[in-house]
Design a protein around this nucleic acid. Structure first.
Length: 570
RNA sequence: GCAGCCAUAGCUCAAUUGGAUAGAGCAUCUGACUACGGAUCAGAAGGUUAGAGGUUCAAGUCCUCUUGGCUGCACCA
């Protein structure tokens, strides 16, 4: 497997630094910010000039003199305050492209040290609909898991369902007194939601109902067979609905260990925390204090209420313990909204106190806003069901296909509408920085131009069209020679796939990959305009076909890492 | 009151994590080949990166303060 251009150049730069007697670690080559300067750049001279006590430009010149680019590139240019700019040789790019098109990993090197990573994401609540609020966690978590896996990590995805807690007292009470069986058959989640709401309203008016609902909860938690059976039904009905949505999204989980799974372990856990001195009694409750951590000094983590009940944090601590025992993970990633930040700080800090050293990351994200820049809700103030969003995306992409390509067979249209619609929703999410609150916009999401899924899918479709016309697949044997600037620009872009993918995990930023894919599709379209493929002849034609094939592979692989499919036509 | 997140073109978003003249898309304006799929491409215009200091060869990015918005702060999850 070839090293990426970046890695190959970095190695050679370090050899030059070593020859100059400089600190090798400071030598890092990165893709040029602006291709006017070159393909890659290094700022080592400026960084090292201080410790070498000399002029950065002179130092850059000395590094350049000692730099042997071999067949990769010529001696670097020196620019500005001391940048070293590298330009790849077209012959080398051509050679690399030839090999790229045969590489099942598309130039992405596997990680040197594979880790075991548990990814905790999606986690909807039983007896409630999945709504747009779950979309970010679900799509982001899935994409990160796919990327980590592709890089060679051992990944366990776990859907930590909200299937245990006070809301079940109300639903159970409603189930026994207010259940509409016909409605349950038609739309189970809507009926469960209705029960929850009605009981909630009744409780406000009548304390007796409140007490009765609590009673139901206590019975459930102490193992009452009837309540336990109803609860199991609630879980099953909800999961059937969730599975349907996950199916539509093409998302699967390795595990589905909800909060209820850990219930039995909570009492023992709290006892252990008390016995070891990690937790202490306070105002009748059991808490972990962090007096030595300033931001948490006045924010203790509650693990047992004064009435003996357990909390969110208790379950999470038990979950960490379980995961550690079962998978021995190097890291646990929690993909959950920014408002939960304090909670995770507390849980992680408490876990550290018990001696857990697993790296734990809260991968936070911002909110989805409506066109009015407020949290996205329906007119009545409810959350918008995720199912409605997905259905709408498919309907809208279907309408576009009917308009652009009415002659396609019905089955294919359906398939395309699904691929494009779901892809658009996912891409809208993944193409931006996870921390920014973003404005949900159908028109932007399904736009055919700009940084959208349909634009990328269309680039892929254009390639496929060329090969349909060609009638055969690519014979990868022949020589490749790139000369046209558009060819070279595209080829260099394609070779960078292997550099971009690993960076996504540095700060959990799929939008870096999305940006790259957009630029790649852009470079392809520019190439497509400038360089006829099928009308060309000989080595030029072959080289261009190789470019097309490599583009298709990288777009398909890159989108697959984001959980997005590609149609053959659209 | 304490803490966290955010503020970039008219709008929606980027910026390889401290690098060069802050980039895209939409909208606006101007162009291109009867097109291997025009669902395209090339170009113009648009900025005191909320404000003020500081750190250094270099700051949208790091530090301090100010303003404005969102969020969370024991006995929900």
């Amino acid at each position: 497997m070839d090293a990426t251009p970046q890695a190959a150049l970095t190695e050679r730069l370090r050899a030059a630094l070593s020859a100059c007697g400089l600190t090798v670690e400071k030598g890092e080559v990165v893709a040029a910010a602006d291709t006017r300067f070159g393909d890659y750049q290094a700022n080592a001279a400026m960084v090292l000039a201080k410790e070498a006590r000399c002029n950065p430009r002179e130092l850059a010149a000395e590094i350049a003199r000692n730099f042997d680019g071999g067949d990769i590139c010529d001696r670097p240019d020196i620019a500005g305050p001391g940048f070293l700019n590298f330009r790849l040789k077209p012959e080398w790019v051509s050679q690399r492209l030839m090999r790229l098109v045969d590489d099942t990993r598309c130039g992405v090197p596997p990680v040197a040290v594979p880790k075991t990573i548990v990814v905790d994401f999606s986690s909807p609540n039983i007896a409630k609909p999945m709504h747009v609020g779950h979309i970010r966690s679900t799509i982001l978590g899935d994409a990160l898991a796919r990327i980590a896996r592709f890089l060679g990590h051992e990944v366990v995805t776990d859907n930590h369902l909200g299937d245990w807690g006070t809301q079940f007292g109300k639903v159970l009470y409603g189930w026994k007194h207010l259940l509409d069986h016909a409605a349950l058959g038609r739309n189970p989640i809507a009926e469960m939601t209705r029960l929850y709401r009605e009981v909630n309203a009744l409780e406000q008016a009548d304390p007796a109902v409140h007490r009765a609902a609590r009673e139901e909860l206590v019975k459930l938690q102490s193992g009452d067979p009837e309540n336990r059976a109803i609860w199991q039904q609630l879980v099953n009905l909800s999961w059937t609905e969730f599975e349907d949505i996950y199916g539509q999204l093409g998302i699967r989980f390795d595990e589905r260990l909800g909060e209820s799974f850990y219930d039995a372990a909570l009492g023992g856990l709290v006892d252990k925390l008390l016995a070891s001195g990690v937790a202490e009694m306070s105002e009748g409750a059991v808490c972990v204090f962090f007096r030595d951590i300033p931001p948490l000094a006045d924010k203790p983590c509650l693990v047992r209420k004064s009435d003996g009940g357990f909390l969110y944090a208790t379950t999470d601590l038990a979950t960490i313990e379980y995961r550690r025992e079962r998978w021995r993970p190097d890291a646990i990633w929690y993909v959950a909204g920014a408002p939960q930040q304090l909670h995770f700080q507390q849980v992680f800090a408490a876990a550290r106190r018990t001696g857990i050293e697993t790296a734990m990351e809260h991968i936070a994200f911002g909110s989805i806003l409506g066109e009015d820049h407020k949290l996205m809700k329906t007119r009545s103030g409810d959350n918008i069901p995720l199912r409605d969003v997905l259905d709408e995306a498919i309907v809208r992409s279907r309408a576009m296909i009917d308009e652009k390509n009415p002659e396609l067979p019905e089955e294919e249209k359906k398939h395309i509408a699904h691929t494009v619609g779901i892809g658009a929703v996912k891409y809208a999410e993944l193409s931006q920085h996870r921390m920014t609150d973003y404005v949900f916009s159908w028109s932007k999401m399904l736009s055919l131009q700009g940084n959208t899924a349909p634009y990328l899918q269309n680039a892929y479709v254009r390639v496929r069209s060329i090969f349909r016309k060609l009638g055969t697949g690519l014979d990868t044997g022949g020589e490749v020679s790139l000369a046209d600037p558009a060819e070279l620009a595209l080829a260099k872009k394609l070779l960078q796939f292997g550099e971009i993918v690993p960076t996504v995990l540095h700060e959990f930023r799929p939008n870096l990959l999305a940006n790259y894919l957009f630029e790649t599709a852009n470079a392809f379209h520019a190439f497509y305009e400038a360089c006829p493929v099928l009308k060309a002849e000989g080595i030029t034609r072959h080289s261009r076909l190789v470019l097309c094939e490599a583009t298709a592979r990288i777009l398909r692989q890159g989108l697959a890492l984001l959980g997005i499919g590609v149609p053959e036509r659209m």
